[in-house]
Simulated scan of single mutants.
Amino acid sequence: MSNEVRRLAVIGIGSGDPDQLTLAAVKAMRGTDVFFVLGKGREKDALTRLRRDMLAEHVPGPYRVVEAEDPWRDRSQEEPSGYAEAVHDWRRRRADVCERLIREELAPGGRGAFLVWGDPSLYDSTLAILEDIRARGEVTFEYEVIPGISSVSALAARHRVSLNRVGRPVHITPGRRLSEILPNDDGDVVVMLDAHESFRHLAGGGVWIYWGAYLGTPDEILIAGPLDEVSDRIRRVRAEARAAHGWIMDTYLLRLGPDAVDG
């Protein structure tokens, strides 16, 4: 049995634009033997193609790409306890898949990598899953994390606004927790993972929204304005885009107060 250690990199690749790859990300990719990709079904084949396009552009090779199906996740749970258990169950099954890939497809002494959308530290499960696998003790490896440009940063850049205002905090939340924050928060709120369009409940509150979908990709959509005026437009465009692509990834910034437009 080899005493050589498997080495992994968790590489943030930005929100979709190949030009958002950092020099550190490109360097790590060029030192990789095997790239692990968890597919999310036929409707999200475009995400896999984007990864392969990045590799083709920036990595001269040789390397292998190993794909596996991402386990199904129960998204019907709305109560906090049921939602948390559904996520933990999905992560356990995802860890099973990743453990098998590392054990079977990455030889001792080899270098593997997971290409993570945005930044691995922000609403992504890869780091927690790798720690779960390490705790099991069935396969040994070391890993490093390469930060990436998150969809939050990309959103602010595309709308040419800052995320914070002078002396105020920024709150980042999943959409399902938005009602717990506004209208009582004294800062600005970035909302991610909002499948239920939670912003629609804030009408009449003097809120400004900066919304973006498919950030960094050729299908990018941007809408900004007073929420009361653009909410219906966002919902219509969002529904049309989801129907056209079979999926949608969107993020938005909510800003309150008379200086909302000035940022």
Rank of each mutant, 00 (worst) to 15 (best):
M1K: 13
M1I: 13
R6S: 03
G12W: 01
P18D: 09
A25N: 05
V26E: 08
D33A: 07
K44I: 09
L50Y: 02
M54R: 09
L55M: 08
P60A: 12
G61F: 08
G61R: 09
Y63Q: 08
V66F: 08
E67T: 09
D70E: 15
R75L: 14
Q77L: 10
S81R: 15
Y83K: 05
A86W: 05
V87E: 12
H88R: 15
D89V: 11
V97D: 08
G112H: 03
I133Q: 01
V139Y: 01
E142M: 08
I146A: 05
I149M: 07
V152N: 00
R165I: 01
R165N: 04
P169S: 04
V170Q: 03
V170T: 06
H171W: 13
G187H: 03
D188M: 01
M192T: 08
L193M: 12
L193E: 01
A195N: 12
H201S: 15
A203L: 15
A203G: 15
G204R: 02
G204M: 04
G205N: 11
Y210A: 05
Y210K: 07
G212E: 00
G216A: 08
I223G: 07
G225L: 04
D228Q: 01
I234L: 08
R235N: 11
V237G: 06
V237Q: 09
A241V: 09
H245N: 11
I248W: 03
M249N: 10
Y252L: 06
R255D: 00
R255N: 03
G257P: 00
P258E: 04
D259W: 07
G263R: 11
